[in-house]
Amino acid sequence: MTITIDKKKCDGCGLSKQPPCMKSCPGNLIYKEFSMKKAVLRCGADCWDCYCCVKVCPKEAIDVVLAYEISNRGAFLKPKALDSNTIEWVLQDKQGNSTSYRQSTQYLPLEQDAADETFTEIGEGI
């Protein structure tokens, strides 16, 4: 479906060539616009709503937005890693009632790998 990236909160993770959102997307749907220092979604309809990018964004700038045709507006769901073993999800309905769910996990940050070092953006036309 789609995500939104809050332009005010997203700083493109500074000098990072591959911000965590871009790195974690299973569909290669996020790229970094270097001139603007922003992460950008290629195509909303290609998104799987898997929350991978939402979970890793250090600025909490990303949100999953369900299409109106299947979902009423006004509710939100936000994950936040409390520590390496807990994600707290805050679920809020449109009346503003919120519930939080503590998910036990083995939350592991994305690690750097050799490919990152050699990574250069030479894609054309994007």
Binding site: C50, V64, L66, S71, N72, G74, L77, P79, W89, D93
Partner: peptide, 20 residues
């Protein structure tokens, strides 16, 4: 059930709430 679904299909938990 919702907590369990967050382990696999978080988007449905949101949809569940959005559609009450």
């Amino acid at each position: 059930l919702k907590l369990t679904l967050l382990d696999m299909s978080p988007a449905f938990v949101l949809q569940w709430t959005a559609n009450a």
